[in-house]
């Protein structure tokens, strides 16, 4: 088990190192000089040169890469070119919205998907299965931003239960959760539909296995067999999808953030790109990569927890 853990950890660190090089190189080849962009069209060459020196843009690529990585390791992400505040502060503010939103959506989608998937598998071919799967198909097909607008129309405009957008902040926990609820639902529903389908087919495949027959021969009921023997064995594909979904929810919520005017990471990176605030883009991308790799690592650990055959 320790070997497995160390192997996964080593793989994680290597992936991070490779990702940092790739991100740095990509940002290097993006056209547009941040210094001249910041100073505007009328800036003198001398002023631009001064700013370039101040931002450290004169140094060699390798030196800048090492400075960037070295800073990040110590929690220093540099100063935003446009906002003139430490990037770490920007990220912190945005993460306070994006991370809870992603977790909220993930919990919602899991809470929806597991009972639905199990129900569909248990009633295979019968109307609960067909109904649930048709709904899931719809959930996958509907674009989430359109669904988000419907939610706004119903709950904010018509019923006026929640505000249509914006983020109330975490000063009041209830208000914070309330302002994230509609976006979380909009994000969670399509994910839940996918997850339920994956769980259903994984369960159906597991239910064909010999050990399920053994369990039935021991005298377990259909339901006991499903919950005790099948669910855990069907867990691996479900964990894989959950891992992918979390990464997507963290980074890919950009459209939903725009629909609900949420100051999240997605919007930050989008603004960073349009304003040539490359240091923000670089750092947020790296952070997202880190999050994805961390989640993959956690999923790997979850695999081992689920399946003893992988603990080597």
């Amino acid at each position: 088990m320790l070997t497995y853990f160390l192997n996964r950890a080593l793989a994680m660190i290597l992936s991070l190192a490779v990702a940092s090089v790739v991100i740095f190189c990509l940002i290097e080849v993006v056209p547009g000089d941040p210094a001249s962009f910041m100073l505007g069209l009328n800036a003198t060459d001398a002023a631009v040169a001064n700013l370039r020196a101040e931002l450290g843009l004169n140094q060699s690529g390798l030196a800048r890469y090492l400075a960037w990585v070295g800073g990040m390791v110590q929690g220093d992400f540099g100063i935003s070119y446009t906002y003139r505040v430490p990037v770490s502060e920007l990220i912190q503010d945005r993460l306070a919205v994006s991370l809870p939103l992603a977790i909220y959506a993930l919990l919602l989608s899991t809470a929806l998907a597991i009972p639905i998937g199990v129900l569909a598998a248990a009633k295979r071919g019968a109307w609960p299965d067909l109904g649930v799967m048709a709904a899931a198909q719809l959930g996958i097909a509907i674009p989430n931003f359109w669904f988000a607008m419907l939610l706004v129309l119903l709950f904010a405009v018509k019923l006026q239960w929640v505000s249509a957008g914006g983020f109330a902040g975490w000063d009041s926990f209830g208000a914070g959760v309330a302002s994230l609820t509609l976006p979380a639902i909009a994000l969670a529903l399509p994910q839940a539909a996918i997850l339920a389908r994956v769980l259903r087919s994984a369960l159906l495949e597991t239910l064909e296995q010999d050990y399920i027959r053994t369990a039935r021969a021991k005298g377990l009921t259909r339901r006991q067999t499903l919950w005790r023997h099948a669910l855990r064995n069907a867990g691996i594909p479900v964990m894989t999808i959950l891992g992918l979904q979390f990464s997507f929810l963290l980074a890919g919520a950009i459209i939903i953030e725009n629909v609900f005017f949420l100051p999240g990471l997605g919007r930050l990176i989008f603004q960073g790109i349009t304003q040539r605030d490359l240091i923000v883009v670089e750092s947020v991308t790296m952070l997202l990569v880190f999050a994805v790799i961390l989640v993959t690592f956690l999923v790997d650990l979850a695999y081992a927890a689920l399946d003893p055959r992988l603990r080597r």
Partner: peptide, 8 residues
């Protein structure tokens, strides 16, 4: 090989 639950 398959008659026992592999994760139990």
């Amino acid at each position: 090989m398959t008659a026992l639950n592999p994760v139990m």
